[in-house]
Design a protein around this nucleic acid. Sequence first.
DNA 1: CTGTTAGCGCCTTCAG
DNA 2: CTGAAGGCGCTAACAG
Lengths: 344, 344
Amino acid sequence: MSKLTASKVTIYDVAKKAGVGIGTVSRVLNNHLQVRPKTRTRVLEAITALDFKPSSVARQLSLQSQIRQIGVITQTFVNYYSFTERLRGIQQTLDKLSSDYELLLYTVSSLEHYQQQLTNIVQTRSVEGLIIIDLELSNKHLELLRDSHIPFVGINHLQTQDWPCIGTNNVEGGYLATKYLLSLGHERIAYVGDTFVEDYTHNTSRERFEGYKRALEEAGVNLSEDLVQLGKHDYDVAKQSAEKLLNLKTPPTAIFAMSDVQALGCVAAIKEKGLKVPDDISVLGYDDLDIGYHTGLSTVRQHLEESGVKGIEYLLGVLGNKKPAVPKLPSPKIIPRQTTRALN
Amino acid sequence: MSKLTASKVTIYDVAKKAGVGIGTVSRVLNNHLQVRPKTRTRVLEAITALDFKPSSVARQLSLQSQIRQIGVITQTFVNYYSFTERLRGIQQTLDKLSSDYELLLYTVSSLEHYQQQLTNIVQTRSVEGLIIIDLELSNKHLELLRDSHIPFVGINHLQTQDWPCIGTNNVEGGYLATKYLLSLGHERIAYVGDTFVEDYTHNTSRERFEGYKRALEEAGVNLSEDLVQLGKHDYDVAKQSAEKLLNLKTPPTAIFAMSDVQALGCVAAIKEKGLKVPDDISVLGYDDLDIGYHTGLSTVRQHLEESGVKGIEYLLGVLGNKKPAVPKLPSPKIIPRQTTRALN
DNA sequence: CTGTTAGCGCCTTCAG
DNA sequence: CTGAAGGCGCTAACAG
């Protein structure tokens, strides 16, 4: 039978209950062995009886030993493959470079949520640095972060804005992808990607589409509306998009999907239709996820894991008062595998 | 030119520099708007000049508002697919059920590291609850955690030990998997899995192998050593294992891999050899990862995401002083897709 | 509007 | 071996 009240139990309560001073309680708590076994047990009993839990905050303040944490903030696990590979880079590098920091994971599911999290982070200062993945930053919140003096870095795209960001150029990636397909002789090239949105998330799909458009223009190929399929970032949705494409009067001979997962959806649709990849239709993904490698998917490498590595390296540099330049990632790169081939 | 010294700057320093009292500094810090704009700016200037960063710890102590965190501890991103799906369940459910907690990610790379992390967690009490994924718990550390009164729950296998654990029965899973292949007429069934180890990680591979063995025995099928290929948990390693199997005098007609990733490695090896899945050889994975779905892999569902959901639900229950029973997961379940078929 | 003061819960001297 | 007292950095309530 323990008390049901949740009111804070402090060492004072424990000391009183055990009939000792708080100093003694503190000593048994920290295993300072100069405590007579008997009193020690008395204290221990009092602790369990009262269900006492020491306050880590008070302890830290007294000890002058702040727990150090680095925050990672991203969307709530939609599109979590690329996030995971980035996180892996972050985690492993953090492990290698410093054992002082713990990783705190923030996820946001809406604009409000995002803003609330940012505000919260700034106010509580629970985190010494922040990595922002796949998310935009409004001027207001940019200022907020700046004022807080909490170092931060974005990961996804090239640094274009006024804040440090690590990633590759999505427009270039889309451009390269499309040029690659063009070079294989394809002209009816479809684009399967996320719906363009103007919200708190980085508009990756639009950027890659821009590159796609530009490459087509340069090649003098008409961009036909019906070859552009936008939808939710999801395997099944992409599969449906591909089905629509296949049902066109003149279906595409190649599909450029803005992510590997979506590309796999397209591949599935094509196979279900009884067609072959790449013999009948080529499919090119984007990301170069591990699963792309595992499935033989042709894709565009955007150096996901490395982006995490560089991101955390940069942040640790700032925190260490070296004034590092914002690192650069290699350009996106075509990785041809077994889902693309030249048009006969 | 800012100071290079890192010695703590406090509000007292700021107050002195700005020629005001600490109360005023606190007020501008917290936007208590009863500050004359002029003094406000003075304070702000002092803050930037001194590069003052308020102590979140002192603030929390004063406000009596502990930041609440839940820890997730696991191996450092080997085998991160299943971990990620579990984490997704944890994260989403936490988001749904409570906005009070943040997720803290611990990863361990060795036994020492693991023990150090646990000790650290217990001592600093930085976390109010702990989810332990794919990791074992020695009696010593079990006691450590118990003494700390930090609620914890394991995720991977069925509760067999003396501590709460959520997961499915791996022996049963291996058994079902093998029985399924037997029912398709296969007898030369290979097992591709992780090397058996006795360390801090949960010995999942051995458990599934146990089930495999049992099913073969029951069916009166001889377990031949050369059909058992153990190695690192890795796509490429599994691929090599499969290559070895294919080079046997009498290769297997079916492969049971202990994970989807390894199963995909086997599939790749078979295809490279010019053989077809499942026409020539059946491959059965384990996990039911999203990528299994994406690739049409036959597999054993172990309810990964749901394990995360139940894990965090349980923990939140304990933290909320309801005394929840340890949740149970549905049994492992065969998910036949396109990589298994009956032997002709 | 602003300076001063009393804690927040714990750890660490310093006496006894 | 143990109790008492000061202080960690900050907030909030209280006088001015």
